[in-house]
Design a protein around this nucleic acid. Sequence first.
DNA 1: GATGAATGAGTGTTCATTCAT
DNA 2: AATGAATGAACACTCATTCAT
Lengths: 201, 201, 201, 201
Amino acid sequence: MNTRTERADQSSVRRTQILAIAARLIASQGYSATTVRDIADEAGILSGSLYHHFSSKEAILEEILRSFMDGLLARFEEIASAGTSPRETFDALVQHSFLTIEREPDAVGLYQNESAFLATQPGFEFLQEKSSRIEALWMTVLREGQAAGAFRGSMDVGVVYRFLRDSLWSTVRWFRPGGRHTAESVSGHYLDLFHNGLLAD
Amino acid sequence: MNTRTERADQSSVRRTQILAIAARLIASQGYSATTVRDIADEAGILSGSLYHHFSSKEAILEEILRSFMDGLLARFEEIASAGTSPRETFDALVQHSFLTIEREPDAVGLYQNESAFLATQPGFEFLQEKSSRIEALWMTVLREGQAAGAFRGSMDVGVVYRFLRDSLWSTVRWFRPGGRHTAESVSGHYLDLFHNGLLAD
Amino acid sequence: MNTRTERADQSSVRRTQILAIAARLIASQGYSATTVRDIADEAGILSGSLYHHFSSKEAILEEILRSFMDGLLARFEEIASAGTSPRETFDALVQHSFLTIEREPDAVGLYQNESAFLATQPGFEFLQEKSSRIEALWMTVLREGQAAGAFRGSMDVGVVYRFLRDSLWSTVRWFRPGGRHTAESVSGHYLDLFHNGLLAD
Amino acid sequence: MNTRTERADQSSVRRTQILAIAARLIASQGYSATTVRDIADEAGILSGSLYHHFSSKEAILEEILRSFMDGLLARFEEIASAGTSPRETFDALVQHSFLTIEREPDAVGLYQNESAFLATQPGFEFLQEKSSRIEALWMTVLREGQAAGAFRGSMDVGVVYRFLRDSLWSTVRWFRPGGRHTAESVSGHYLDLFHNGLLAD
DNA sequence: GATGAATGAGTGTTCATTCAT
DNA sequence: AATGAATGAACACTCATTCAT
């Protein structure tokens, strides 16, 4: 590996470190309560030095969200196009979601807290677009499941999707890696509840 | 009604107006992105004049959250002590929750966005305390339902509660009064899903 | 005079003070080398307090230039429409210009230093417009003077105007009120030179 | 030519390029509004790399001004000591000045905009000194012209010099090489006006 | 109860400059 | 001769808060 490549890699490493730090702080304090000085302090540099790597505070936020959404959508699309039955696909989508919460809790938390407001802001239109595509993908699975007789046909799929989605992603607030739960165990509880409901019999 | 009472009432009216404005702004933009000037502008006064009504920006936030939590807990306790069956109690709790979202969407939204971070801040310990009591109340209903054979006994009540709670309150993000849904219709969808689950048969 | 009027006047007084301070500093150091702290320091307030009176540093600059240009153009138009002979009008324009330099040397100096660059900047289009109208007004006087046989007909009026204008307004760099020269004496020298030229006979 | 000399020449070429770029940017935007990054960008290098050629931003400015002033004064001295008549000398000084504006508009423009402020700054005393010598040289020509009966004796030579100088050098703001005017044509207009004045007869 | 002027701390960002590589 | 990461000071501007009027 030559010197130029090493340097580019180091640069990439530095950027990635900063993005991780920023994601953590923004996820826990909120975007506007997190200062660039907070981020720089944790990165061990001065706040002005951040601008060597990123053009603005907002650009950091955008990069975190964009790469999170891109990765998530890509993986969801793989799962949806795997040719499995609607119920199997649904279960796999759920399992991957909990895996994502386990692996990237900061990006998930940040998205949960900030995306509603950001989606309307210039430069963040991609949030709307990606989440629409994710919604369409889940809705398709639910509708196909109804058509195939796997899911109850009487439900309003649009409303059900929202209940499922919110219940799933809100998990990030209490399910943190290293605690009592794993992605797998939470997935299990989630699927049991949403498959069968609360009622006995 | 004497002059003193009238004045106190006017003051109270003004306070209530300001609290409503603040709740709306904070719910939509977040606490730290909402300035006291934003609030004052909407109230038609100068920002400094807010301090005749409230001692600080934080005090406004606290008052909104405290009265919201107090009211909610009080009503939940009424419902829980009505002597109905666990399933009836559960359904009533759900219905009242959606009614609360319909009536006080700003307080609910604000609570959803800010409470996680605030709960650890000095002066906001009451958030932790009230929400613990609410949690205990719901958990009791769920456990009693299991004991009575109404709810499936195999579920982890703690995890189920979180799924139920998050799904329910997150509704505030898409169910706004005056839209396609009413508290009643959303309640219906919610109870159908959580009672019976997704799966057919 | 009631309290409200007094206060509005004080406010106006404060603004005027700040504008005068800013004009002086910007005229001597340049706009971008003059900081809002420089201005605030001289005004005896903190830099942030300037924003109670003006929305931005640029707004201060704009207000100085706009009121200067408006006043100058208005007076020039009065002079040009007084019905005097071309030569009398010309002399009066010159005399008023030197009077302006004597009375508002900071605005004149600031205009000399910054207007060329600013004229192309958004929000400062008025500079171009006003100076075009001033140019048209002088050119008319010069052309009428040629037509009337008062001024030599062989000269290129456009070029001559520029020589006259630059020589006149550049005076601000060395003719400061309170020095060896007065507006009247400098006017005399200027008119003698430009009327009769350098050459003897 | 040996390697060392070649290298020094390359270095010299690079320096000259950078000086030309800097002169152009500073002339059009002003010194403090021109960043070292602006200069480096146009030179195709990073801003830090400028410091291999110049010790500071100020050193660039100084070098531009010093070489401009040295060249101008040297040429003026040649003209003044050519033994021609005062009027011929005067005309030659004017002609050379316009030639200088045509050849080095950036240095001239930069000097016009910045020298008044810079002259008082440490490290730029040479500006004062050179311009004093230039002034003395022109004043001598004017006085000798008066003594010889070529120029009118009634004029205040000090004031006249300033009018002549400002009118001449301000030309840089509107006379740019490649436009409608040449140094020669502008010289002609200038000399006609200042020789003979505006008035007919 | 409200104004308007001001404070003082802090915000995101820019800049000339340094230096190991 | 140039890079790229960093510095440290400064910048324009914002904010919650205070207080005399």
